[in-house]
Design a protein around this nucleic acid. Structure first.
Lengths: 198, 198
DNA sequence: ACTTAAATGGGGTGGCCCTCCGGTTATGGT
DNA sequence: ACCATAACCGGAGGGCCACCCCATTTAAGT
C-alpha cells in the first residue's frame, strides 16, 4: 500500500523525508488535477505541496507518471468493480454497467480519461503496470464472458471499447453536464455493440 | 474568395502588405498544424511565416480563430459533400457516408476535430459562422432526412452524432493507423444509431 | 556522535503566449 | 510626383511554464 513498497518491494525503503514529500506531492496533485484537469501546472502542484519543483520532477519524471500515481487508487477500484461484476448472471449487463462505471469515474475525475488513454506505448517505456494495462486486463475478462455468452459481436476488441469510452469522456469533459452527456453517448455507442438478436 | 472579402465584403479592402502577411501566416499555420496538431506553437508559425508574433496575434486574436481560418476550406468542402449527398435515395447511407467523410477529414487533418469540437459557445463570442455551426447545419439536414425515413432513432440530435465522430477522431489522432481505427470505431458506434428494424 | 550517501530546492535556461509602442509603409488626394 | 496620414509591422519585455544543475541539508547506520 505504501508508495515505496507498492512498485518494487525489494527496493531499499525510501528515506522518511522522501516518502513524506512523495505523499504531499501526490495529495497536492490530486487536488490540482481535480480542479484544473490533466494539464494542471506542475509548478503549482509543487508549490501547493510546499516542495521545490526539482523534487517533484525527481519523484515523477513525467506528467504521465504523476497522473498514473494520482489515479492508481481509482483504477484499482474500477478493476475491483470488474471482478465483482464478473460473477453476475448476465455478462452483457455486467459489461455495460462496468463501462458505465468507467465513464462515470472518468467524468467525475478530470484527467482520468486522458491518463487511461495514453498507454505504455507512448511516453516512457519501462512503466510497469500502467493504468491503461490494468483497465484493459480487467475489461478483457468481462468482454470475454459477454462474448462467450454471444451477447456481443465477436470481432470487437476490448481496446476499441475502452477507446470509445475514453474518447467520449475526453470530448465531453469540459461541458457543464458532462455526466449526462457521457451517459447518453455511451448508451448510443453501446447499443451498437450488442447483437441485434439478443 | 479573398480573405478580406470573404467575411465582410463591405469592409475596406486590406492593405496589400496586410493581406500578404495574412496569407503567409495561414499557409505557415496549415503546415505547422498538419505536422504537430492543433497545439502547434504560435510563435513557430509566426517564425515560419517570416512575421513577428505581434502580427500573427493581430490577424488572429485567438488560436481558435486561426484554426477556423486554416480549416475553413476543408469544412466548406464537407458542407458541399453533405449537400451533394442529401439528394441520394438512401438517407441512412447518405448520413453514414457523410459522417465517414467527416471522420476521414478529421484524421487526415490533425487539429480539425479539436477545432470542430470547440463551438462558438466557449472562447470568443461574436464569431460569425464557425466551423462548428457550419458542420452542424450541414449534418442536421442529412440527419433530418434520415429521421423522416425512419432510418435512425428519433431522439438522437446531430450534435451528439458529431460529438461522437469528433471524440473518436480526437482519441485516435496520434495513433499510427488513425484512419483505420477511426473507421472501425465509427462503424461500431453508428450501428447503434441505426434502428434495429431497418 | 559521526560519517556518508540520499534528498532537497533555489536559481538558471529556454520556451511559450501575449501586449505595448516606436518606427515603417502603402494609399488616396493634391 | 509628392505628401499627409492612417494602417501596419515586429522587436522588446512581462508573466508563466517545464526541466536541470549543484551547493547545501538531512536522515540513517555504526
Amino acid at each position: 500500500m505504501s508508495p515505496a513498497s507498492r512498485t518494487v518491494p525489494s527496493a531499499r525503503p525510501m528515506r522518511a523525508d522522501a516518502r513524506r514529500n512523495h505523499d504531499r506531492i501526490l495529495a497536492a496533485a490530486a487536488e490540482a488535477v481535480a480542479e484544473q484537469g490533466a494539464e494542471a501546472s506542475l509548478e503549482e502542484i509543487a508549490r501547493r505541496a510546499g516542495v521545490g519543483s526539482a523534487t517533484l520532477h525527481r519523484h515523477f519524471p513525467s506528467r504521465q507518471r504523476l497522473l498514473e500515481a494520482v489515479f492508481r487508487d481509482k483504477v484499482e477500484a474500477l478493476c475491483a468493480t470488474a471482478a465483482g461484476l464478473a460473477g453476475g448472471p448476465d455478462p452483457w449487463h455486467a459489461l455495460a454497467t462496468w463501462l458505465g462505471a468507467v465513464a462515470a469515474h472518468a467524468v467525475s475525475n478530470r484527467g482520468l480519461a486522458a491518463s487511461l488513454m495514453r498507454g505504455a506505448h507512448d511516453g516512457d517505456p519501462a512503466l510497469g503496470a500502467t493504468c491503461h494495462t490494468m483497465i484493459t486486463n480487467a475489461g478483457a475478462d468481462l468482454l470475454d464472458r459477454a462474448r462467450r455468452a454471444k451477447a456481443v459481436r465477436p470481432d470487437v476488441p476490448i481496446t476499441d471499447l475502452l477507446k470509445l469510452v475514453n474518447a467520449i469522456c475526453l470530448a465531453v469533459e469540459r461541458e457543464p453536464d458532462a455526466a449526462a452527456q457521457a451517459d447518453r453517448l455511451l448508451t448510443l455507442a453501446l447499443t451498437g455493440v450488442r447483437k441485434a438478436g439478443s
